[in-house]
């Protein structure tokens, strides 16, 4: 057991180190690029007075290390500073957007992950039969199409033609849970279509890979029905790779949804970051980047830990 704890501890430590490295890169990428940051922020409207005001506001006269430390220590306690565009604390700008993104991502994940794993297992169970081939073709088609295209297609069919769901996913603050779900139905469906194929195909591949192991033949020779072979003998040994692909897609649901948010005019993190970039709101860009990094690194760390826990050799050392 100490082995296991050490392994997981190591993963956590590496995750934190990665985040630290990312924070450095984000800082360098946004503040230390060549040229005068204040002029960059102001763009063409830069007057000497405005530039001086921005320089003073951002303490650009201080050495980079000091500025980094000031920013990083703030990040550690959840203080990202104030938005340049609105002057409001970034946390208050960011939190509702993050909530919206997580709500959409969670909704899509709740549909996509079980669906993908179930389809993958059934495809492995009925390998090379009609079900397998149909699913494979359908999911391949879904992942081959760009997500904005799928989004517009769904809008055309379900919003314009059928009128079942709204084409624009505005959520009013007073909406209840059901209304919220109704509002995000189409973006959630888009994301489901985009991610299910990938997860389903990897699940199928992982299980099929395990199915060639000698212990599967042994299970058959013990008189184990095919269904039990897939679920009892193959699935537990395929959890590592499945967890990895699931996590990769979960991460995509959070950090890769910008296009879908734009299509459905959904007020999520992606939109926020795009807006921040166009307004040259450097502190807000940094905050978004850090949130995305935390999501990505955290989820991947989770996949590593699941893989470790799924390995009986590590769970039960000799």
């Amino acid at each position: 057991m100490p082995d296991l704890v050490r392994l997981i501890g190591k993963r956590l430590l590496f995750g934190l180190l990665t985040l630290f490295a990312v924070s450095v890169l984000v800082f360098i990428g946004t503040e230390l690029l060549p040229g005068d940051l204040a002029e960059v922020i102001l763009g063409q409207t830069a007057t000497p007075e405005a530039v001086a005001a921005i320089r003073a506001k951002l303490n650009l006269g201080d050495p980079a290390v000091l500025r980094y430390w000031r920013w990083f220590s703030g990040v550690l306690v959840g203080d990202f500073g104030n938005s340049l565009a609105s002057g409001r604390p970034i946390t208050t700008v960011l939190l509702p957007r993050l909530q919206a993104t997580l709500f959409l991502a969670a909704t899509a994940a709740v549909i996509a992950v079980p669906l993908a794993i179930a389809l993958g297992l059934l495809s492995a169970l009925w390998r090379d039969r009609t079900f397998d081939k149909t699913t494979s073709a359908a999911t391949l088609a879904a992942i081959s199409m760009p997500e904005f295209f799928i989004g517009y297609l769904l809008v055309y069919v379900f919003a314009v033609q059928l009128g079942w769901f709204p084409a624009i996913s505005r959520i009013s603050p007073s909406a209840n849970f059901g209304q919220k779900l109704w509002a995000i139905a189409l973006p959630a469906l888009t994301l489901t279509l985009v991610t299910t194929g990938h997860m389903m195909r990897m699940t199928r591949a992982a299980v099929v890979q395990v199915l060639s192991a000698p212990y599967i033949e042994m299970a058959e020779l013990k008189g184990t029905p095919r269904r039990a072979i897939i679920f009892r003998h193959a699935l537990p040994n395929a959890i590592g790779p499945i967890a990895n692909v699931v996590v990769l897609n979960l991460a995509f649901l959070v950090v890769g949804v910008i296009l879908v948010e734009v299509v459905f005019v959904y007020p999520g993190m992606g939109q926020l970051m795009v807006d921040a970039v166009s307004k040259r709101d450097i502190p807000l860009i940094q905050a978004c980047a850090i949130v995305f990094a935390i999501t990505y690194v955290g989820l991947n760390m989770l996949a590593d830990i699941v893989s470790i826990l799924a390995n009986p050799r590590l769970r039960h050392p000799r």
Partner: peptide
């Protein structure tokens, strides 16, 4: 299979499910 005719494989290390 398994009830009336049983099988003992060459490599037990590979024929037992590690999980």
């Amino acid at each position: 299979r398994g009830r009336r005719v049983a099988y003992v494989a060459q490599s037990a290390a590979a024929a037992f499910n590690p999980a």
